[in-house]
Simulated assay, not measured.
Amino acid sequence: MNLDDDEVVARIRRDMMDSYEEELELELEDHEFGPDGEEVRAPDTAEEKEFRRFYFRELLRLQTELIKVQDWVVNSRQKIVIVFEGRDSAGKGGAIKRITQRLNPRVCRVAALPAPNDRERTQWYFQRYVSHLPAAGEIVLFDRSWYNRAGVERVMGFCTDDEYEEFFRSVPEFERMLARSGIKVLKYWFSITDEEQHMRFLSRIHDPLKQWKLSPMDLESRRRWELYTKAKEVMLERTHIAEAPWWVVQAVDKKRARLNCINHLLTQIPYEPVEHPAIVLPERTRHDDYIRNPVPQEMLVPEIY
Rank of each mutant, 00 (worst) to 15 (best):
G91Q: 05
R224Y: 08
H287N: 09
T45W: 08
E196H: 06
P172Y: 00
P270E: 14
S145R: 05
P172W: 02
S19R: 10
L133W: 05
Y20C: 02
V249P: 01
W247T: 08
E58H: 03
P294N: 01
N293I: 02
R53E: 14
P208K: 10
E138M: 08
N2H: 13
G86M: 07
D6R: 11
G182C: 12
Y147I: 01
T239E: 05
S221W: 05
R53P: 00
F174V: 13
E303Y: 08
F167M: 09
E120I: 04
A10N: 07
L266M: 05
L300V: 12
L186F: 13
A95Y: 02
I80Y: 01
R256E: 15
I205G: 07
R87S: 03
Q127T: 01
G86K: 03
D88F: 00
F142E: 12
R284K: 14
G34S: 11
L265F: 03
P35R: 02
S131K: 12
S89V: 08
E173F: 08
T100V: 12
D118M: 01
F54S: 09
L28S: 11
I304V: 14
E195Q: 14
Q197S: 03
D4H: 10
R61D: 02
R176H: 13
L236D: 08
V249F: 02
L60P: 01
V248H: 06
E29G: 05
A46C: 10
L60M: 09
H31A: 11
C261G: 00
E275G: 06
P270S: 11
H31R: 12
Q211D: 06
L141D: 04
D143K: 01
E120A: 03
Q78T: 08
K97H: 10
D288H: 10
R224C: 06
Y305P: 08
D253H: 09
Y271S: 07
R52K: 15
V8N: 04
F51M: 11
F84E: 02
S19W: 09
N104D: 15
Y290K: 04
W146Y: 11
L60C: 03
R41H: 12
A257H: 09
E7F: 00
K68N: 05
P282T: 03
F167C: 06
L133A: 00
S181G: 09
D15P: 00
W146T: 04
D44W: 11
K49Y: 10
I12G: 03
D30L: 15
H132I: 01
Q211T: 13
